[in-house]
């Protein structure tokens, strides 16, 4: 069952990702990104990371994509077909294919025999406990990052009078 779900979602992600980097339309690109993110969220659910999945939906899909679309509209970037690719496409293809070849071969060799077992999903409760006990430090740091990003974004985007 899980394998079937994984297969379908993986196909979706692969398709959307490839389209994202080849599309000639910015808004389509944003939508393909959305598809990838949603697919990843389903994978998280599948891998028993419920909370991560919901954060993915809320933060990425709810906020990031809206933010991206807003940005696109605010900058009134031409939304039609346009030259979005640079001259380096063949080189880029070679490089990324090489990286894919090497990485996939190596992970295949390393994790060949290992399988994941789907046990009881953890609850938000246990994750929350972990964050506020063991991971206080990164949590606090991230809160400052968010604050800085907030102030920074306001400063940059604000129009000077």
């Amino acid at each position: 069952m899980q394998q079937v779900v994984f297969g379908i979602v993986a196909a979706l992600i692969v398709f959307a990702a490839v389209r994202l980097v080849t599309t000639r339309n910015l808004v389509h690109g944003a939508l393909y990104l959305l598809a990838v993110l949603a697919g990843a969220a389903i994978l998280f659910l599948l891998f028993l990371a419920e909370f991560v999945a919901w954060v993915q939906v809320l933060v990425y899909i709810g906020a990031v994509v809206v933010l991206l679309l807003f940005g696109l509209m605010l900058t009134r970037a031409p939304i039609g077909n346009m030259a979005l690719d640079s001259q380096t496409r063949p080189l880029a293809a070679v490089v990324s294919l090489a990286i894919f070849g090497i990485t996939s071969t190596i992970v295949w060799k390393t994790f060949k025999g290992q399988t994941v077992h789907f046990s009881k999903p953890n609850t938000v409760d246990t994750l929350g406990r972990a964050i506020f006990s063991q991971y206080v430090l990164p949590f606090e740091i991230v809160s400052v990052v968010l604050l800085a990003a907030l102030v920074g974004a306001v400063v940059l985007a604000r129009k000077e009078e």
Binding site: V36, V95, V116
Partner: peptide, 21 residues
């Protein structure tokens, strides 16, 4: 697990392609 990892490697490589191209 290797299936998942190959998927993520693919995603990573496609991302690299996008950055370069």
């Amino acid at each position: 697990v290797a299936w998942v990892l190959i998927l993520s490697s693919f995603l990573f490589s496609v991302g690299i392609y996008g950055v370069l191209a």
